[in-house]
Design a protein around this nucleic acid. Sequence first.
DNA 1: GCAAAAGTGTTTGGGTTACACCCATGC
DNA 2: GCATGGGTGTAACCCAAACACTTTTGC
Lengths: 227, 227
Amino acid sequence: MVSSAQSSVIAPNLAVSTVIFTLRPNADGCLKLALPLVKRIRAPFEGQWALPGGPLNISEDLATAASRNLLETTHLEPRYLEQLYAFGSLDRSPGSNLADRVVSIVYWALVGNDEAGTAVESENVQWFWADELPALAFDHNEIVNYALWRLRNKLEYSRLAHRFLPELFTLAQLREVYEAVLNRELDPGNFRRTVEAEGAVVPTGERLAGTKHRPPQLYRANQTGEN
Amino acid sequence: MVSSAQSSVIAPNLAVSTVIFTLRPNADGCLKLALPLVKRIRAPFEGQWALPGGPLNISEDLATAASRNLLETTHLEPRYLEQLYAFGSLDRSPGSNLADRVVSIVYWALVGNDEAGTAVESENVQWFWADELPALAFDHNEIVNYALWRLRNKLEYSRLAHRFLPELFTLAQLREVYEAVLNRELDPGNFRRTVEAEGAVVPTGERLAGTKHRPPQLYRANQTGEN
DNA sequence: GCAAAAGTGTTTGGGTTACACCCATGC
DNA sequence: GCATGGGTGTAACCCAAACACTTTTGC
């Protein structure tokens, strides 16, 4: 219910945080999920890594705030942005005063692996492999795990894999996205048929040259239909 | 991110609302989805119907607040409770001052149709058919539609249908739940096999007497496994 | 020619759908 | 016996997995 009461001093604080995923090649050249974290510069959890986020401005949409977090930490625009969950347990910040309680509305986002290379890193902003995270501040490990679960789930019944990729891509690249996120190999032939049957993708007729094998066709995401 | 800033006067207000579903027989005796609404007694939208809800107490969990809303409006305990979404658009309350902006974290809940009969109705609390709602306050029509979508979706891949029913139920009753929510007839034989194969249900050996046909067996929900 | 990945064809098996049919009770 | 829903059997069909095979490039 929406009430017109003024915010009182004794109301929970509201913040927006964002889990930002991209895919980057590791040392072996295979793609792996990575995400940026920021180092906390004050208590609680000073010096530990945390999700980018901050208070919600009074004149700002929730998704806009998430997008702003993303821009401020990575200087990138999201290719995909979706609300994840609102986290509001009383014990999110152990030892803190109740008056400092914060409810975080968390979004998750995808950025292209072509753009993520240009993303800044600094002493206070670094990218981590999603499966090798350190102990994060607050309940942020739990939040990332939930975001990972949601990403994997959604990848299977929705068409968002292409958001990791540039506008034109080969089916092998698209398959690598699925394989990296789901952590499981897929049959190239069956993958092709499935994707084509879904109409998730439209052929451009162009081919990618320079490979040392038969040149694969370039595709574009089908914008019509869901996602 | 959780910060330790005190809540300022110029922060959005935080509220929790709940969409409460039950199944009730209509005039023809078939089950239909129903939900309780409360009449607003002050501006904005004074006199219009709205979802039950209110501000989040500083020492209260989000789910606890939703459960409390539910108890206060219906005097019932939820059989199922899940966070739906956080609604925070700037235009949720047209004409209102920005300082009165409210972000609502909305939950959805199921209550048993056996208990819902005992639920109170008053001038300011009434149950409505989910498919015959009046124009509600704020963005609450949109919220209910989303909750309906989520309920229907979740019913198909999860085991929550039995939450509408008492502890012991026949497979026909369970099937009626699906038919009422999904608004589509199901083949009794196939339904039985599907439900049994999922292991969603365990036979009790007891039978329901008093029907004017072969007495059906009573089942109990299988608590092991998901949901 | 050889390696490697692109792209196509085919078989198989599991699971869902449709529907026929028998069973047990009240009247 | 008859009506009614409970409960079982079964064939058709669809879709996804497995895998063999052909194609086109670089070297």
